[in-house]
Each structure stands twice: as structure tokens, then as C-alpha cells.
């Protein structure tokens, strides 16, 4: 029964309760929940750095603005242009391709490494911390490092023979971006899976061992189902994250070769900072926000994550 939609009189509501036997619920102590002003710092920060810029960007998408001077309202012009822009369509395609490739490569690798790292093996702790290192470096530094490493004449790419022109081919450049993003972020997702895998009750494995299950059977029948919620969390972070990669493209491929690695955030940057069309760039930014929000909502909705059912139910 929700307050506010309850239109019955107090008497009716009371009579509804009365036949129910059992002890009365004890009254909650008034101090058990933080007062609402505790929210203030977080709400202020969120408002200032997330909500307000978001509103501003939506506003800017209805203006023409060079980044300096005064934005001039131009109505729906940017939006009309956006929906007829073949280039934005191509770029969105590349963005989705990159997102899918990132998920497909990172999830299995992170899952396997995480499950492995949760185990009791010798040297596990040392190796795990080494695997973790790339996450600690800044993306800009990583991108520049890989850019040098992939130089066809002076980098490690020289060893690749005919494949040394990796960044010079559309497929190669996308592969390189997927690889470097994976290299940086797999450790993070590995950490999620490691923590989750440690939480799987040992009794499940003990019982399975008694029943004569093999290791791979245990992985498929116990570990994987137990990690379901973590897979969803990790995938959401991964997919939404893939929609916002920017530095890596700017520094590793500069959108090239040609326009093969233009993705939406990069296109937004080009439109804004290189072409000084901040209004149009804001329209692209708004699309990105809507896209990322929709995708994460869809993941949560169709994975049953919203119900937050514990994987330990029935234990």
C-alpha cells in the first residue's frame, strides 16, 4: 500500500489491517535513517558536475555557438541536420561495432582471469597485481605508448612483417583500439569477477566434488550461474564505457586511417573543438547520453538485474 495513492478513509484502512494476527511491527526509531540534508553534498556535486552540464548541453544543442561569444538560438536546426547526417550514421555504426567487440573480447578474458585469481594457487597474488598494473596508468599515456609501439618502422610493429601497417588499415586500427582498451580495462573487470568468485559458497563445490563433477562442469554449472549479477554489472560498465572512449582514439589513431575509427565521442570533439560547431557537437553529446542511458536500462531490464535476486537464494 503506497501512501499518496491510498484514497480510502482511515477507518477502512484500519479495518483492513485489523484481522491480521501476529505481533505488531515495532515502531521504527526516528534516528535510524540519515536526515535528508545528509544528501546535500552529494546532491550539490551531482547537480553541479552532472545534472547542470547535461541541461546546458541540451540547451546548447538548440543554439549555434563557436565556443566563445554568445550562443544564438536556432531552434531545431542542429537536430534536423543530425538526423539527415550520413556521417553521423556511419560513426554510430563504428561506435556500436567497437562496443560489441569490446564486450566480446573483454568479458571472457576478465571472467576467466577473475575466477583464476580467486583461487588459492601459488604466485596468484603476485601475478594478479602485475595484471592489475595497466589500470593504474592514464589512458593518454597508454595510448601514446601504444602509438609508438605500433609505429611500422621504429616500433614493435616492425616485427609483425606484412601486418606492421596495423594502424594504416581500417580493420587493423579498430583491432588495435579494442586491444588497447582491453589491455587497460580487463584488470578492472577481473577484479570484479575475482571478488564475486570468492563469494561463491565453498559447499557448492564440495557437494559437486562428492557427486563426481569435473572442473569444467563445476565452472559451467556453479561458478558461471553464481556470477550472473556480476556479469551484468561488468557488462553495463563495459558497454556504457565503450560509448565514451575518446582519448584512446584521439591519440592512437586520430580517427584514421581516413575516417575508419571515428566514434561518436570523437566526432563530437571534432565538431566542437576543431570545427567550432559547439551547438551541433552538443546535439551529438545529447544523443550519446540518451544512447548510453537506454543501453544500460535495456541491459538491466532484460537481464532481470532490476529484481536484484540474490544468487544465494535457497541456500
Amino acid at each position: 500500500m503506497v501512501a499518496g495513492v491510498d484514497t480510502r478513509t482511515g477507518e477502512e484502512a484500519a479495518s483492513d489491517e485489523s484481522p491480521r494476527p501476529g505481533p505488531r511491527e515495532p515502531a521504527r526509531p526516528a534516528v535510524s535513517r540519515p536526515r535528508s540534508w545528509y544528501l546535500l553534498p552529494a546532491a550539490l556535486l551531482f547537480g553541479l558536475f552532472a545534472a547542470f552540464p547535461l541541461v546546458l548541453v541540451v540547451f546548447l544543442s538548440f543554439t549555434e555557438w563557436e565556443g566563445i561569444g554568445d550562443p544564438a538560438l536556432i531552434g531545431l536546426d542542429n537536430w534536423v541536420r543530425l538526423f539527415g547526417d550520413q556521417r553521423v550514421l556511419d560513426v554510430t555504426g563504428t561506435t556500436l561495432l567497437l562496443t560489441v567487440l569490446c564486450w566480446v573480447t573483454q568479458t571472457p578474458a576478465a571472467l576467466l582471469l577473475g575466477v583464476w585469481a580467486a583461487g588459492p594457487q601459488r604466485n596468484r597474488a603476485i601475478l594478479s597485481s602485475i595484471f592489475f598494473l595497466p589500470l593504474l596508468l592514464s589512458t593518454a599515456a597508454l595510448a601514446l605508448m601504444w602509438q609508438r609501439l605500433l609505429d611500422p618502422y621504429f616500433g614493435l610493429a616492425t616485427e609483425l612483417g606484412p601486418l606492421r601497417n596495423l594502424l594504416g588499415t581500417g580493420t587493423g586500427a579498430i583491432a588495435a583500439i579494442v586491444f588497447v582498451i582491453g589491455w587497460q580495462y580487463i584488470p578492472f573487470h577481473m577484479l570484479l569477477y575475482q571478488a564475486a568468485a570468492r563469494n561463491v559458497p565453498k559447499v557448492l563445490y564440495d557437494a559437486a566434488t562428492l557427486d563426481g563433477a569435473s572442473r569444467s562442469q563445476m565452472f559451467w554449472q556453479i561458478t558461471l550461474p553464481q556470477l550472473r549479477n556480476t556479469i551484468i554489472t561488468s557488462s553495463t560498465i563495459m558497454v556504457v564505457g565503450s560509448l565514451t572512449h575518446f582519448e584512446i582514439v584521439l591519440l592512437l589513431t586520430n580517427g584514421g586511417p581516413g575516417t575508419a575509427t571515428y566514434i561518436l565521442p570523437f566526432e563530437m570533439y571534432i565538431r566542437g573543438f576543431r570545427a567550432l560547431e559547439f551547438g551541433y557537437a552538443s546535439a551529438i553529446a545529447t544523443v550519446l547520453v540518451v544512447l548510453a542511458t537506454t543501453v544500460s536500462l535495456v541491459i538491466v531490464k532484460f537481464s532481470g538485474f532490476a529484481k536484484m535476486r540474490s544468487t544465494l537464494e535457497g541456500m
Binding site: L144, Q147, R148, L150, D151, P152, Y153, F154, A157, R164, N165, L166, L167, G168, T169, N254, G256, P257
Partner: peptide, 21 residues
């Protein structure tokens, strides 16, 4: 055959000519 992979930052092109490649 690999010019599209060479970036300006890093002086790849300048080093190629300096080394006689």
C-alpha cells in the same frame, strides 16, 4: 606501404629520411 600508420608526433617520418631509409 605503411605511411598511414606513421604519426607526426614521434618524428617517425623525419627519422626515416635521416637514417636513409
Amino acid at each position: 606501404d605503411s605511411f598511414a600508420s606513421v604519426r607526426w608526433e614521434g618524428a617517425g617520418a623525419s627519422t626515416l629520411i635521416a637514417q636513409g631509409r
